[in-house]
Nucleic acid binder design. Structure first.
Lengths: 403, 403
DNA sequence: TCGGGCAACGCAAGCGGTTGCGCTCAACGG
DNA sequence: CCGTTGAGCGCAACCGCTTGCGTTGCCCGA
């Protein structure tokens, strides 16, 4: 019966409801014998305290809100998984909120829907605007962030700048000098903080090494495989090809790998690629990348949040999370620097398959021809009408026609 | 102020709390003028009803529980995304539960933690045991399932049998006769219903066409990339190679593609591969697969659940979801049936890279050598100590040494 | 003019717990 | 032997909102 109340238990045990309450939550003031009778009565009746009544009486909701801009992307799913385990372990409820677009986001924070509803809020990688921050402050519950620093809120962050710098430094150490960046699109509506930071790390490494930087070496796209493809296509349309590419996230790196593969550029022979995140597919592709344990971050921050939510008065803290460079198979020393220096800019029609060398045929082997026509090399990226022309011919390093 | 109660609003508006309550929820019995004053007072004070008090008073929780065996896997993340949108749209809270392993699962259902906590439950692809079912029944709230049929519960299902059959029929239509299956591991602790159904579809198609079936043509692994790799490795150790492989899910197909690639078998030239699900990466690999719209299923079932939770008395229903075969680039007619028939079983050492033909070198280009040593070809699958020996040499079709 | 009917609104009793406070009574020290 | 103490337990007042029912006052028909 789902209707058993504390009174039923009290009646069965022959005590008052207050004793049942005290006993069941171990507050003392109840003799061992009584406690035993109460416990017996309680689980004979299958009694469960009513969360609503409990919350009303105590004022604590026993609930944590987790708000995420994406549910399906690897990073967020992983984070959610880590947080969920800890939150539930602590006996709290996890209220999930997905903030899909800017309008939802606006409504969400201004509606005050969280008010009186949660004991704590966990927000993933959203760079909050001032009104959003103050809306959260007015909730008067601890707020924890992932990947973003806000005064008064706790957070867990990896060092994106340093980590990106490490990744690029790896390329530099290998001897690369023209290192391109595949970056997140700054027009991204959700204002993530990650892309600019990884961008900064990229620039820092190159700057410190005295290597060239500039728009010629940078291309942008969404933080997805498709975004990575588009950005790489842009790169391939530039006057001079890089010998290495740093992608701000693994998904973009996958996109890069695909495009490079299709045009017959070999990885890492012709171009090295390094990603960021260590997405589960990264090992599949043998992608060199910067690994971060996202689930662990979720656990750490959720644990902190739970603590703050329960023991009120704890101060907000800034937690760190480590990263490490994982070197796999997509990075290597550039083939031949001297040769590379005065490479003949021999242009060649990309889609003239008849002239394809073994490398191109290898690409073809991997991915023969897409039946759904979804091919970035054939379909110029929407916003850039000149993409197609620029791609008709590309500069490619000469030589190494086959082993 | 997060402490504003209905009395504050009533006081400001100069009415009684009951009028505020009636007015705010549009129950009539309040004059237009009063309603206006109340509304003004309410949002001047930033008033929000206390969910706890509301729930206690009304008995309805305004909450839906969503329970998932995985959070990070594509299918479940997608489903969650779809359901979340609908649930929140309906103004309900979404309580997320992750049932990681069997023990959690047991504790979860026996603890009655859902009791008095939710107005409805949405469960993804768990084949419930009898005690679990009755535990859910005793909750006395509508229960909806995804991918599983239970008497008295609603559900949304694709036709796994027919869809799998379609996928295999596609291979048959192309002329394939030796069609292997990469199947989910039956020892999977969570008892999913999908693998056996897709298995049945596979058998049905083959049976109807009079084509061979049997353990020689089947291999098992986890429903993951790694599982697909392991299963494919098993397949490659068999006496006779299939010309086509049906993987019960796309992740497994990805694993198959990788292994085939590494050993130099070309797709679809040497082996056709078809998956199931249309995972976002499927188009990346050009994988022929059976597409299903998982987010849509989440939306549909959540909508149904919300309806049932609100208008009590609605009957449970069985909803369907469609699938469609998406033909991409991993399936083609078998190269040469006649030739195939009396192929010389020329064994060759897999890792003797010196003898590698162009195809193998192409594989090498794609995935040169894993730095982390996580290579199914080098590491025999745990449970099968004889895997390594069997893999030392494999039977491989002769001919087609190069493009 | 007067009674009936019906909006509009307030009263108060819950909903199912928690918790401060007061009572009872056995144990114990002086 | 008596006063004090404190453990064990019940009483009742909330927590904030909903809702059935009673009251008020106005409009209308007879």
């Amino acid at each position: 019966m789902s209707k058993t109340t504390i009174k039923d238990v009290a009646g069965l045990a022959g005590v008052s409801p207050s004793s049942v309450s005290r006993s069941l939550r171990g507050m003392g003031g109840v003799s061992a014998g009584t406690t035993e009778r109460i416990r017996a009565a309680a689980d004979q009746l299958g009694y469960t305290v009513s969360p609503a009544a409990y919350r009303l009486a105590t004022g604590r909701t026993g609930t944590i809100a987790v708000v995420m801009p994406y549910l399906t992307r690897w990073f967020f799913a992983e984070l959610l998984g880590g947080a969920e385990a800890v939150i539930r372990q602590a006996g709290l409820d996890l209220l999930l909120y997905h903030i899909g677009d800017l309008e939802m986001r606006k409504r969400y924070f201004s509606s005050g829907i969280l008010r009186k509803r949660v004991d704590g809020v966990l927000i993933a990688t959203l760079a909050l605007t001032e009104p959003e921050v103050s809306a959260l402050r007015s909730l008067d519950v601890p707020v924890c962030m992932v990947g973003t620093l806000v005064e008064g809120f706790s957070s867990v962050c990896i060092d994106d700048v340093a980590s990106a710098r490490t990744a690029v430094q790896h390329l530099i150490n290998l001897g690369h000098e023209r290192i391109a960046l595949i970056a997140g699109d700054p027009r991204e509506p959700m204002h993530f903080t990650v892309p600019p930071q990884r961008h900064a790390g990229y620039l820092a490494a190159l700057g410190a090494a005295g290597l060239p930087t500039g728009p010629e070496l940078e291309a942008q796209g969404a933080f997805t495989v498709e975004g990575g493809e588009e950005a790489t296509v842009q790169l391939l349309g530039r006057a001079e090809l890089p010998t290495a590419i740093f992608a701000e996230c693994d998904e973009m790196a996958f996109g890069a790998l695909r495009v490079l593969d299709r045009v017959g550029l070999r990885v890492p022979d012709d171009v090295s690629v390094v990603g960021f995140d260590d997405h589960p597919m990264a090992s599949y592709f043998g992608l060199t990348t910067v690994a971060q344990d996202v689930a662990e971050q979720g656990r750490v921050i959720a644990d902190h949040l739970v603590r703050r939510a329960q023991a009120n008065g704890t101060k907000p803290a800034r937690l760190g999370a480590s990263t490490r460079l994982v070197i796999r198979a997509t990075t290597a020393a550039p083939r031949n620097k001297a040769h590379n220096a005065h490479n003949a800019h021999k242009s060649r029609t990309l889609r003239a398959t008849g002239t394809a060398g073994a490398a191109l045929s290898a690409a073809r082997l991997r991915r023969p021809a897409l039946a759904n026509g979804h091919d970035p090399l054939e379909r110029p990226p929407g916003p850039r009408p000149d993409g197609h022309e620029r791609l008709a011919t590309i500069k490619k390093k000469k030589g190494e026609t086959q082993q």
